[in-house]
Structures are given as C-alpha cells and as structure tokens.
Amino acid sequence: MNTTARSKGFAVQATELTRRFGNLTAVNHIDLAIPYGEIFGLLGANGAGKSTLIKMLTTLLAPTSGNAEVGGFDILKSPSEVRGRIGYVPQLLSADGALTGYENLLLSAKLYGLPRAERGVRIGEALNFMGLTDSARKLVKTYSGGMIRRLELAQAMLHRPAILFLDEPTIGLDPLARHSVWDRLRDLRRDYGMTVLITTHDMEEAEALCDEVAILHAGRVAVVGKPPELRTRLGAGASMDDVFAHYAGGGIREGGDFSNAVQTRQTARRLG
C-alpha cells in the first residue's frame, strides 16, 4: 500500500492521515491511493472512521496529523483548489427543500463560479442526465427520495469535478431508487471520466458498484482490494458479507454512537 501511495497520478493519495477527537482516534494513520477513473468504496461499520476520513479529504475537517492530496492538490496547503476539483454529496440531505430543483442547481453553479453564459446549458445537461428535467421547476420538498439524491448528484457534477465524494449515497432508498443512483454513478464515470469515492456499509452496493474497496476497522485500513479478489482470498464460496465480517473485526461489531444512529434514521426518514 505504501509503495503505491507514493507513486504519481492518483485521484486521492493519503499518507498517514490521522484525526483524533479528544481520546478517540477516529482515523488512525491511514494510507490510501485511489487511481483516477475508479469507483472506490470505503466500507466499515458505523464509527469505523469512514465519514471522518471523507470529511478530511473534502477539506471539511483538518487532520490531526498526516496529509493527503486530492486531485493533485494538498488538502492543507491548497484547500480552495481541492474544493474546485471535487463534488460532494453528504450523507445528510443537502438539497434545499424550500427551493426548486432548478434553483438548487443555480446556486451551485454560482458558488462554483460557472460563467453566466454556460450556466443554463450545464444545468439543462445535468437535469437531463439525472432524469429530472420535468421536475426542475417543482419544489424539492415534493421530490421522492431517489429524485433528491439524483438532484444532489446533479449539483455535485455541475462543475465537472475530477472526483466525486459520496457519503452513504443510497442509505434509506428503496431498491429501485438505489439501482437508479448506481446507474447514474456508472454513467458519470463512463461519460465524464469521474473518479467516484463512496462510503457504504452495504455489501451488495460494494460488490455491484465498486472496482476496488477498502475496509476500515477502528480507524485503520484493514484490507484493500477488488471485491472478487477479496472473496477468493477468503476461500471458495465466500461472500462480501463474509469478507466484511472477517476484516471488520470478527463478526459485525456494534459501532457508532447515539448521534450516528439519529443521523442515519433522520436521513432514512426524509428519503422515505
């Protein structure tokens, strides 16, 4: 892992990335190298450090020690450049329900500094790509969960970022909506060459969507690999659930705290 982390040309390259909250070390000396164009999954139980890691990589949270480069820029020295090259969909629902889909997109276009002449075209394209053209003028609070997630993806892709970060993108969605989000993510990679980094604790999602995954356990990377390889490594007939149970600490460990649980349920309720 360390040798690859030092080589050039990675979309995300973390070195000894660490974050402590008081006595708790949420992310503990993580090295990670994600090649451009990959759909990469960060797996782990609640409290394994996925969200903290993603917050650091998206410049929302400063690391306690270590560093990372995202899109070729240092997250500590050039956070603004990093922000210009990434798109982010938080686990929470970030689209504004009191605005229409179009207004949400327009705000993003302006904050990302898209020239006025290009805004209309890009917004139209993003709406079309996500299948939301007909609902663009409706208030987002009338959208279904899957539509909201697709709108958030549209917002995140508007400025054509090199890397998309998605924190639990399909949590709380029904199977149909979940598959439609997966399809859009694959299309984004195919049509725009975007690198996609998702966090999930859904093994089906990891298997179906990700080229490569890292399983986090107690703030460390327990293993990195392609899902079929990880299964094979564990033995014939092993499923991703088995892989997860093996590397996430001998069985599905109970993780996360009260606020974690509240947050997840709130998101699920709003999407449902």
């Binding site: 982010y88 970030s94 904050l111």
Partner: peptide, 14 residues
C-alpha cells in the same frame, strides 16, 4: 447544518 446544506456550502470553492 442538520440537513447537510452547510456541508455542501463549505465544500464549494466559494
């Protein structure tokens, strides 16, 4: 903040 709107604003280069 609870909705995630603040996260999205802060991840933008604004």
């Amino acid at each position: 903040r609870d909705l995630g709107v603040v996260h999205k604003l802060l991840v933008s280069p604004a």
